[in-house]
C-alpha cells in the first residue's frame, strides 16, 4: 500500500508538471508526445483543454460582446460524424486568424452529455488541439426553448454554425461546412 501511494505521488507530480508544459519544459525531460517506447505512461502530450460547462443564458451573454472580435460559434458533439469531419476546417481557419492577428475567436459548443466530459470530450479536444474557447452546453431539457432563441429556422440538427459580431447574430448555417463553405460564410466578416 505504502509503495503504491508513493507511486501515485510520483505519477501525480509528473502529471501536474506535464499539464503546464510551457512553464515546466526545462524541468520536465519527457515533454511533448513520446512516440517511441512506453506508450502506457500517462503523460499528456499537451495541456488538457479547458471546457466550461454552461447553461443557455451564460452562453448567450458570452456572445454579447461590444468589441471588434468576430465570434464563430460551432455546435458539435463527439458522436456527430459530420461535426467531427468539419472540425479540421475550423481549426485551420482559427489558426490562420491567430497567425494573422485577426480579431477572431472560435467558440466550440459541445452538446455531448456532461457526464462524458472528462472521459471523452476533453481527450477528444486535446488530441485535435483546436484554438478555440470550449464550452459544453448542459441544457438538454430546455432545447425547445433555446434552439429557437438562437435561430428560428434551426431544426436542431448539428453541426450548426453562427457568426456573432458586436453582440448580434450575423449569420447562421445548419449542416456541415467544407473549407470553401466556411470561408464563404465568414468572408464578409473576417478579411
Amino acid at each position: 500500500m505504502k509503495k503504491s501511494v508513493l507511486g501515485w505521488a510520483a505519477l501525480c507530480s509528473i502529471f501536474i508538471a506535464a499539464s503546464c508544459n510551457s512553464v515546466n519544459d526545462s524541468e520536465n525531460p519527457q515533454k511533448g508526445p513520446s512516440e517511441s517506447e512506453a506508450p502506457a505512461k500517462p503523460l499528456p502530450a499537451a495541456e488538457n483543454p479547458e471546457v466550461t460547462v454552461i447553461k443557455y443564458e451564460q452562453l448567450q451573454s458570452r456572445l454579447q460582446q461590444d468589441n471588434d472580435t468576430v465570434y464563430v460559434v460551432n455546435f458539435w458533439a463527439t458522436w456527430c460524424g459530420p461535426c467531427v469531419k468539419e472540425l479540421p476546417h475550423f481549426k485551420s481557419f482559427s489558426d490562420r486568424m491567430a497567425k494573422e492577428h485577426k480579431p477572431f475567436r472560435l467558440i466550440m459548443v459541445s452538446l455531448d452529455q456532461s457526464d462524458i466530459l472528462q472521459d471523452k470530450v476533453v481527450p477528444f479536444l486535446k488530441e485535435r488541439n483546436i484554438n478555440a474557447q470550449h464550452y459544453l452546453l448542459d441544457d438538454n431539457t430546455r432545447m425547445n426553448e433555446w434552439i429557437p432563441k438562437f435561430e428560428a429556422t434551426w431544426s436542431g440538427a448539428i453541426p450548426a454554425t453562427f457568426v456573432y459580431e458586436k453582440g448580434e447574430k450575423r449569420a447562421f448555417h445548419e449542416g456541415s461546412l467544407d473549407e470553401k463553405g466556411l470561408t464563404q460564410l465568414l468572408q464578409s466578416y473576417v478579411h
Partner: peptide
C-alpha cells in the same frame, strides 16, 4: 411544434 437537437440526416445530396 417543438425542436430538439438530433442527428442530421445522412444524404449525399445535402452533405457538403
Amino acid at each position: 411544434k417543438t425542436v430538439a437537437i438530433g442527428c442530421g440526416i445522412k444524404d449525399k445530396k445535402t452533405e457538403s
